[in-house]
Amino acid sequence: MPYTVTPTALPEVMILEPQVFGDARGFFFESFNELDFHKATGLKVHFVQDNHSKSAKGVLRGLHYQIQHPQGKLVRVVQGEVFDVAVDLRKSSSHFGQWVGVHLSEKNHRQLWVPPGFAHGFVVLSDSAEFLYKTTDYWFAEHERSLVWNDPDVGIDWPIDFSPQLAAKDQNGRSLKNADVYL
């Protein structure tokens, strides 16, 4: 199996570790194969958009979601290291408001599947990080929402000892109590 799948505390959020082939020249791995992804996860997903960001140490992006046209995301880091977080925003879920966090880096080659219905974000732990993600739906600015990164009701244990750099939309993110959520 080209992927090893590790469940997280939130059953729908999964860590995927690809089989990496390395030698003195470097390494090779398939970062995505639809058939193998389906076999490993049981999910049939269709990705419509790839995104790539680069951020400096201390930048925190998120926690983002789209209230309409929710996006599933398959995320990974190709340079540097981040702490990546998913928060369940499905009101009907027994895990509503709970979060899971995973270290993703260029060294561990891990990927995280963040299903639709979850907020997603990350903080950069290395000097910089390049972050790639595939999405199951397109971005719609009018449907994008931000959950505030430090909401005490969610209680994310970010592995940082500094105040992160935030975009204005993330500084103005809503608390879980006041956020638009999924049914």
Rank of each mutant, 00 (worst) to 15 (best):
E130I: 11
D127G: 11
D153H: 15
S163V: 10
R145F: 10
P164Y: 03
P115V: 08
V148W: 04
Q165H: 12
F131E: 04
I156Q: 03
W158C: 06
V154P: 12
G117R: 03
P115Q: 09
L112G: 05
Q165F: 13
A141P: 13
D153C: 11
L132A: 02
R110G: 00
K134T: 02
T135G: 05
P152G: 13
L112R: 00
I160H: 03
S146H: 02
W113A: 05
D170V: 09
A141R: 08
T135V: 13
F122Y: 14
L112K: 00
R110E: 00
D170F: 01
D127N: 14
T136R: 10
F162T: 11
P159C: 07
A129H: 05
D161W: 00
G155H: 12
S146I: 00
D137W: 00
L125Q: 03
H120I: 03
A168Q: 15
I160W: 04
N150A: 13
V123Q: 08
V154W: 12
E144A: 14
R145S: 11
T135H: 06
F140S: 10
N150T: 11
H143E: 14
Q171W: 06
K169P: 09
K134G: 06
V154R: 10
I160T: 06
K134Y: 02
N172D: 14
E144K: 12
S163F: 00
A168T: 14
W113C: 00
W139V: 07
D151V: 14
S128Y: 14
F131I: 15
D157K: 14
D153I: 01
K169R: 15
A141N: 09
P164F: 06
S163A: 12
F118M: 07
F122L: 05
S128E: 15
G121N: 03
Y133M: 01
V123L: 07
E142I: 04
P115D: 09
W113K: 07
D151Y: 14
S146P: 05
Y133I: 00
Q165V: 15
L125A: 05
P116N: 12
E144T: 12
Q165G: 05
F131A: 00
F131L: 11
Q165I: 15
L132N: 11
L166E: 06
H120N: 13
E130V: 13
D161C: 03
A129Q: 01
G121S: 07
E144W: 08
P164E: 07
L147I: 12
L147T: 11
Q111C: 04
F118K: 04
G155P: 12
I156H: 07
N172W: 07
G121E: 05
T136N: 09
